[in-house]
C-alpha cells in the first residue's frame, strides 16, 4: 500500500512517498512556491515511478497543513514528529524537532505514544531564525555555520538568547576582532541552551533524537550533547521526520 506524507513547514514543504514501511522517494520545495504541496507530491511520485491512482491516503502536517488541497486528512506536528522520530530511531524516548521558525520537544512512552511535549513557535530564540540572523551578521551561509563552529579554539560567550540582543552582541564581538569560529561556537551554545531548556521541561529521558532541518547542524548537536550529558542521535534525512510520520499515519488511517 502506498501513502504520502506532506509536511508544509514555514520555510520548506517536504513530501515522502511510503510503501509499507519503505520510503520510496522524497521531495522538498520552498513553501513560498505556489501549490508547493501539490508540486512536491507530483515530483515525489515521479521519482518513485508511481502513478497517483496507487496512493491510498495523503496526510498533511506542519503550519500550512490546511492549505494542502491534495491531502485527504491532516495531523498535528507533534503526533507526526513522534511517529516519524520513532520510525527513524525506534528506541527514541525524547524527540526534538528543530525547525526554521519553531521547535518542539516530545517525550514518548515505551509504546511510542506522546507522553508530554513542549512547543515553541512564539519566540525566535531556539529556532532556525536565530541562526539565520547570526549568519547574516557574520556573513557565513547557514549551511556552513555548524562545521565552522567546530573549529573554534577559544570559548566565547554569547549571553543573550534573544535574536535581537544576540545580534548586537555578535556585532560587538566582530568589532573586537574575535575569530568567526569562536563567535559561531558561542552562537551555537546559545541556541542549544534554549533548546536544552525545553528538554529540561519535559525531563531528560534517553534516548534523545534530533530531527528537523537544524539537526543537520553539527554545532547545535555538539552543544546539545554537552548540555544534556548524553548522545543525541541524528537520523539520515532528519528534516523528513514529520513527513514520514504523516505518511505512516496515512497508512494507519487507510487501514481502519
Amino acid at each position: 500500500m502506498v501513502t504520502i506524507g506532506v509536511d508544509a513547514g514555514s520555510l520548506t514543504t517536504k513530501v515522502v512517498v511510503l510503501e509499507g514501511t519503505a520510503v520510496l522517494s522524497r521531495s522538498s520545495l520552498h513553501s513560498s512556491t505556489r501549490d508547493a504541496g501539490g508540486k512536491g507530491i507530483e515530483e515525489a511520485l515521479r521519482s518513485a515511478g508511481i502513478g497517483r491512482e496507487r496512493v491510498k491516503e495523503i496526510v498533511a502536517t506542519g503550519i500550512g497543513r490546511n492549505e494542502v488541497a491534495q491531502a485527504t486528512s491532516a495531523a498535528t506536528e507533534i503526533v507526526c514528529d513522534a511517529r516519524g522520530g520513532r520510525f527513524l530511531a525506534p528506541s527514541a524516548a525524547t524527540i526534538m524537532d528543530i525547525g526554521a521558525e519553531s521547535s518542539r520537544v516530545i517525550k514518548c512512552d515505551q509504546a511510542g505514544r506522546v507522553a508530554d511535549f513542549v512547543l515553541n513557535d512564539k519566540c525566535a530564540a531556539g529556532t532556525g531564525v536565530f541562526l539565520e540572523a547570526m549568519g547574516k551578521a557574520l556573513r557565513v551561509p547557514v549551511s556552513e555555520m555548524g562545521s565552522l563552529s567546530l573549529k573554534s579554539t577559544q570559548e566565547v560567550n554569547i549571553t543573550a538568547m534573544c535574536v535581537v540582543f544576540a545580534e548586537s552582541e555578535v556585532v560587538s564581538q566582530i568589532h573586537r576582532r574575535v575569530a568567526k569560529e569562536d563567535i559561531l561556537n558561542g552562537i551555537h551554545k546559545s541556541i542549544a541552551t534554549r533548546l536544552y531548556g525545553m528538554v529540561n521541561r519535559v525531563g531528560i529521558v534517553k534516548n534523545v533524537v534530533a530531527v528537523g532541518g537544524l539537526a543537520r547542524n553539527a554545532g547545535v548537536v555538539r552543544w546539545l550533547e554537552e548540555l544534556i550529558g548524553a548522545e543525541v542521535f541524528v537520523p539520515e534525512f532528519p528534516e523528513y521526520a514529520g513527513a514520514v510520520g504523516a505518511a505512516l499515519i496515512a497508512a494507519d488511517r487507510s487501514q481502519s
Binding site: 543573550a160 538568547m161 534554549r194 536544552y196 531548556g197 529540561n200 521541561r201 519535559v202 525531563g203
Partner: peptide, 17 residues
C-alpha cells in the same frame, strides 16, 4: 535571571524529582 525559564523546568515538573 535571564535564563530561569531554561534552567528551571517549572515548579510542578521539578517537584516529583
Amino acid at each position: 535571571t535571564r535564563s530561569v525559564g531554561v534552567l528551571c523546568p517549572g515548579y510542578e515538573r521539578c517537584r516529583d524529582k
